[in-house]
Design a protein around this nucleic acid. Structure first.
Lengths: 228, 228
DNA sequence: TAATAGAACGAACGATCGTGCTATTATCCA
DNA sequence: TGGATAATAGCACGATCGTTCGTTCTATTA
């Protein structure tokens, strides 16, 4: 859209061929491994410099790969950005959601919060929470990248809310609690911890966030459930 | 740093000549008015596209001004960004801090929160809270721009904390409350409201933030002060 | 062995970036 | 009124942006 391209690129390379069926461990076109390598590095750079600051030339240089060779994996910068978001989501699911997914109700809610905070604290992404940065960077840039981010964040908030609702049904959280509001507050406090950690280089930032979240959760639990 | 500039620019135009002393209302070099016009527009663009996405060429085009003429006002892009941050701070002080500054203690704290929320809700900046976006954009870019943002945010949090401490000394807030933590939580919830408003286009976002902040404040006030 | 497809490369494109010089215009004081 | 000074415009620069093209290398398949 910026450069007047006479013919639209990216007609091939539609999307990641992450085929769910028939996935032999290593008998795969060699390009997928390269693509993976590119995306890992790209996610790290993007978490530091932003999805727009992520540049194809720089990415290729740091990977010692030709710019055109790298570009051919994606077909457009927008597709690359989408792929980076997907890659970051995979990492997030791996680190935050999956380790907690066997819990239910209040235990699940607590585990999600704990995992999120340690995900932020142990710098899974070198530039802090990828999605905090990306959602604020793209909140005014319509397009598929923004749509993807919105979808992911809605799903994440939905997970928090759903866990809280289950806890409510199980009698662990009081009936009069607005679980949507609760999810919002948890998310805001967590992102606040990330913000304070990144901006002030405050090592206690995530502890502050954790304290606030735990207190908030304790406030909404029924008496027999309080203090874990 | 990106372009190999043989000689450093911006030796003149050190900084905004906002002289504290002897400031006649209108007898000033005419260039300041233009500078003002530029910065107003620049702040709006930057709140939408980010401080790095703010481009001198585009800014000049939308203002129907030559690029070099605009550039001469600042001397470097970094200086422009610093000036934009300062301009945004002036607007923030005008809209949020000054209208509350005659209050003290708990009243001040409440007024600051209310003003912040209405500052976010009524879109003082078209792209949402300028500082939320800028602090996440620059948290990994060392330099004077980041330093400025850090300083401003520290001062703002200090204001919240100071008001809470005064309220504590006046017996309006309980003695056992960690006012630093309280300031952090208020700020996190407020920024969360901004985040939800921008990303989801959620008209109820600031209401959610307000509800959370008011409840939190009520929790720390002494009984005789609760419910305003 | 020949044919084919995928992966990576080098070179180049038009555009735009920030920046620097030089000339022209507007403004103000003597 | 003229001359100094400040403000703006014009033009060009090197670099880098995303993107395209044609080619080469490699590996699988016929």
């Amino acid at each position: 859209m910026k450069n007047g391209s006479p013919q639209s690129a990216a007609t091939r390379h539609s999307h990641r061929p992450a085929s769910p069926a028939a996935q032999q461990p290593s008998r795969r076109p060699r390009g997928l491994k390269t693509r993976r390598t590119i995306l890992r590095k790209a996610v790290n750079i993007a978490s530091l410099e932003g999805l727009e600051g992520l540049t194809i030339g720089r990415l290729a240089t740091t990977l010692r790969i030709s710019k055109s060779g790298l570009f051919a994996h994606f077909g457009s910068k927008e597709d690359l950005q989408c792929a980076v978001v997907d890659e970051a989501r995979d990492i997030f699911v791996e680190k935050v959601i999956r380790p907690a997914w066997h819990f239910k109700g209040l235990r699940l809610l607590r585990a999600l919060c704990e995992n999120w905070l340690s995900y932020g604290e142990q710098k899974v992404f070198p530039g802090g929470c990828f999605f905090s940065a990306a959602s604020l960077e793209f909140d005014d840039r319509p397009g598929p990248v923004r749509d993807r981010i919105v979808g992911l964040m809605k799903k994440w908030l939905g997970n928090l809310e759903h866990a809280a609702r289950d806890a409510q049904a199980a009698g662990e959280i009081r009936e009069d609690v607005d679980v949507h509001q609760l999810a919002f507050e948890i998310q805001a406090l967590a992102m606040g911890g990330n913000w304070s950690s990144r901006l002030f280089r405050d090592p206690a930032a995530f502890r502050s966030a954790q304290a606030a979240i735990l207190r908030r959760i304790d406030q909404v639990t029924t008496t027999e459930q309080s203090r874990k």
